[in-house]
Every structure is written in C-alpha cells, then in structure tokens.
Nucleic acid binder design. Structure first.
Length: 469
RNA sequence: CGGGCUGUGGCUUAGUUUGGUCUAGAGCGCUCGGCUGGGGGCCGAGAGAUCGGGAGUUCAAAUCUCCCCAGCCCGACCA
C-alpha cells in the first residue's frame, strides 16, 4: 500500500525534504540572480490566499492600502541612526542609472519606514488627521548571503503597515491590535499554526523600534520561525522625519508611529508547520484547492460523473479542481498529495456502480465512502474536521516539544529538539549572549499565561528560546 | 569576507587519479506509439551535451597546467 518515496523523509534530512517539497509541489524555483526566487503558480496561489486573509483583517482594523516607491534616497536611511546601522549590511544600492552615475545613490527598499515617514510628515497637520493608518503590499530587497526559497531570499513579497498616532498609548494599542487581530488570528484560525506570541528581547528588536511584538511558530523539526512582527517605533521616526501635528491645545507634537509586516516567508512556514513525508499539507481554510476530483480512468462515464460532482461541490462552497485521468492513477495521487490538497475525491467505475465516491483526507489518510447526494455536506464536514485536527495536532506537537527549564544549560539542551520556556529573569543579557553563541535565541518574551506583555520590564515574564530559521 | 569543495543533456550523475578504447554512458524527466489503469505501471521507438568560459601543453584533452566565472557546504545579520 505504501507508495515509494517521492521525497526525502523529514527524519532523514529536513532541509532537503523542504527543498524537495518546494520543487515537486511546483511552488518555486531559484531565480537567475543568486538569492532571488521565482514563485510558480501553485506557490503564488497559496500566497494569494494568505494575502486575501491578511488583507481583509488589515482593512477590518481600519488601515487603507497605498503604494510607495521602490527607490528610496539613500540619505533617508541615514536619518535614523539605529535603522541605518541595522539595514546597511543588506542594502542594494543603485549608483548608476540612465547611462550615468547618480548624484545621490538610490536604495532599493528593504522596508519603507523612511519614505512613508517623509510623506506622513507632509500629510499630517492636525490631531484631526490622526490616526493615519496605511498599509502597502510590495516587494522588498534585503541582500542575503544564505538564501533559501521562501524563508530567506534577497527579494521577497510582503505587506508592511505604517501608522501614526497622537500618543504612545494609541500607537501601542494599535500595534497590539494588529499583532492579535490580524496576525495571530490568521495564524491560528486560517493557517492552523498555534504561534507563541510575545515581544522581542532588546537585542532581537527591529532596528529603530522601541518594542517589537512577534508571532513565533514551531516547525516540525522543532525550530522556530518568526511569522509576523509588529513594531512600536515610539517617536524615533517622527523625530527623524519631522512627523508632527498640532494638538487640540495648539501645541506642535511629535507623532508616535508603528510598523508591522508579514511576508512570503509564511509560505515556507506553511510547508514546515504542517508538511509530512508525503509532502505539503494545506489547512482547508487556506487551500486554493480544497478538493481535487480524481477520475480513476479517462472514460466518458467517469468524466461526466466528475463534472457533475465538481459542480455539486462548487455549489456547496468547496473550491475544486478536476484531474481528468491522464497518466497513471498512482502518479496523479502522489502529485496531489505532494501539493497538500485537503481532500481527494476518487471517482471510478467501481464507485459509480454503487452510487458513491471515495474521499481521502490528506492529513490522516482516512478514506470515506460517501454517497453522491451526501458528498457536498460530507466534504464540508471533513474539511472542517481537518482544519481542527491540524491546529490541534500542531498544538500538541508544540506543547510536547516545549520544555520548562530553570537554567541556561537546560534551555540550550531543550533547544536542540524544540523550544524551552524559562523565566526571563533567569536569562538576562549575559544568558542571552550564551544562547546566541550556540545558535539559540530568545524568540519571544511572554507573560506566564502566554499573553503578550507591554514591555520587557513587567514582572514574572517568561522567555521562549529556540533555534530558528 | 575567511575556510573546505564542485562545475558533464531539463534534473541527478558515470567517466577525471593513470590523456587515446568517449563518435561522452546511465537513471529520472520529456516526445511519439501501444498495452494499461483503484497508490510514482509495462513494452517499444525517439529528441536532447560544442563536458562552466578562455588560453596553453600534446600527434591526441571531459581528463594535465594557468587564468576567469558560477555555484555548494561551514563561520558574523535578517521577514
């Protein structure tokens, strides 16, 4: 019954398994310039689903989409000291264009705090103009030395939100809202990734931020992946770009700004959070194709039945694709499994003779014989069950691979196979340095109940430490 | 940027040590035909490589020498 291995197994070589999945599920290819990525239709369809879900949540939080230029004057970066220091190693700079040397080099955006800050300063006059809530979907460039498809590429796609507020409290509350209502909600309820939430330690913070909120997912090899970040930028950028408003009292005041983003890295996270030895496993709510109808044979009677089943499923709100039965059955089944399509509806002469189809769930391989009449509702039910099972499975793995420890040594030990939870007081700057020396880092700092604190100075915080991508 | 290594059809690679038997072989993939068909099925026929690039040594270079280029792995940052 077991099919021959199309992929390297996870236990044998996890990074290689990842590469195999990306290639064989036809998600992406390496671009011609080192570190660049070609996103293929299936990979892009997954990204479009991620975009749609995140975009809807961003709009629900009141932000509007806009677009700012790819090219940024180099001088902008110099205005915020930490920001320029943090980003200069990975900047791509255009010095020659239009047939001549440029008088001022132009940076290809690695992130847009600076340009957007410049325009916020122009647009904001009064407290009545606040809050200003912007978001853009864009590509960004951060020159990478060690690229990996989706996880770390020199150019990637993302959304970056940028907002300006009258007070620290408003800004902090909005960053928190995005963190919880956009990212965490999406991760848990759509992507089925029970991410740990918290704030970054000072040394892991975004360059130029006063506080960074993060969602950290556990991959199936026990390593962490940062899946989103939301930053409180304080008045750092407002000061650098002169983003000021006139208060009700008539005083000129500096704004408080935030920025927040999630990228195509989430596609990599999807692969590693749920994938198994047969390939990708896509949560139903995220799947571009929720059910593939596989014709066992390329025969008119079977194909007609497939078309009718397809129509019925679509009418029932299930997104589908029909595999018309060219090529061997085993090959086609394997290909759909690698792509992680949640349900496979097998339609063959034997099924049709009995007025049924065979439905197979991708996550647990369970087979269900379903009558044609019951199929749409049964499919919806199975999709819902799979969505729940994926989240519960991921949570169970996460909890089983998270160890409570009381020393840095034990944290390092635990981080070899999973996460460690340790009192933040036990870590300290020197403890964090020791962790970092062994490629382990503080992924986030959270309250004892798992919620996100407001600052690293709250009492009784715990640190989640792990190796990370 | 420092250290280790590799470049041979689309992909994985044999051949390089010891130059000639290489008109470069195979597997996967691809094309065509047939048989098949409920887990990568079988048979047959094909297409596809100026052996990373350049220079050199030699009667003779995938193989030896030099230079260049590209990529991979390991060490400091990042969504």
């Amino acid at each position: 019954m077991a099919s021959p291995n199309a992929l390297t197994s996870q236990s044998e070589d996890f990074p290689r398994w990842y590469q195999d999945v990306v290639a064989k599920a036809e998600m992406a290819d390496n671009g011609p310039v080192r570190g660049t990525m070609v996103i293929r239709p299936y990979g892009y369809a997954l990204w479009e689903r991620i975009q749609a879900e995140i975009d809807a949540r961003i709009k629900a939080a009141g932000a509007q989409n806009a677009y700012f230029p790819l090219f940024i004057p180099q001088s902008y970066f110099a205005r915020e000291a930490e920001h320029v220091e943090g980003f200069s190693p990975e900047l791509a700079v255009v010095t020659y264009a239009g047939g001549e040397e440029l008088s001022e080099p132009v940076v290809v955006r690695p992130t847009s705090e600076t340009v957007i800050g410049e325009f916020m300063a122009k647009w904001i006059q009064s407290h009545r103009d606040l809050p200003l809530l912007l978001n853009q979907w864009a590509n960004v460039v951060r020159w990478e030395l060690r690229p990996r498809l989706f996880l770390r590429s020199s150019e990637f796609l993302w959304q970056e939100g940028h907002t300006a507020h009258v007070s620290y409290e408003d800004a902090a509350a909005y960053a928190m809202r995005i963190h919880l209502e956009v990212y965490h909600d999406f991760l848990v309820n759509v992507m089925a990734v029970p991410a740990y939430v918290g704030i970054k330690s000072p040394r892991e913070r975004f360059a130029g931020a006063i506080n960074s909120l993060t969602c950290e997912g556990m991959m199936r090899d026990g390593k962490a992946l940062q899946m989103s970040t939301s930053h409180e930028l304080g008045q750092n950028f407002a000061r650098a770009f002169n983003i000021v408003y006139q208060s009700e009292a008539g005083q000129s005041e500096l704004c408080h700004t935030t920025s927040w983003g999630a990228s195509t890295r989430l596609v990599g996270g999807l692969i590693m959070a749920h994938g198994d030895d047969r390939g990708l496993v896509v949560p139903p709510r995220l799947a571009p194709i929720q059910a593939v109808i596989v014709a066992v044979r390329d025969e008119p009677a079977v194909l007609d039945a497939c078309a009718a089943i397809d129509a019925a499923l679509r009418a029932g709100g299930v997104t589908t694709s029909v595999d018309r039965g060219r090529g061997s059955f085993g090959r086609r089944v394997t290909d759909w499994e690698i792509k992680g399509v949640p349900l496979r509806v097998e339609v063959g002469p034997r099924d049709l003779a009995n007025g049924v189809v065979t439905v197979v769930r991708r996550d647990d391989g369970s087979k269900h014989v379903v009558t044609l009449e019951a199929l749409p509702s049964r499919a919806t039910e199975l999709l819902a069950q799979m969505q729940t099972a994926l989240l519960e499975g991921a949570r169970a793995r996460r909890d089983a691979a998270t160890a409570d420890v009381t020393s840095i040594d034990d944290a390092i030990e635990a981080a070899q196979t999973g996460f460690a939870r340790i009192a933040w007081d036990q870590v300290g700057d020197s403890g964090e340095a020791r962790l970092n020396d062994l490629a382990v880092s503080v992924r986030c700092i959270q309250r004892a109940d798992g919620s996100t604190p407001v600052s690293p100075n709250e009492a009784d915080l715990v640190a989640i430490v792990a190796k990370s991508y």
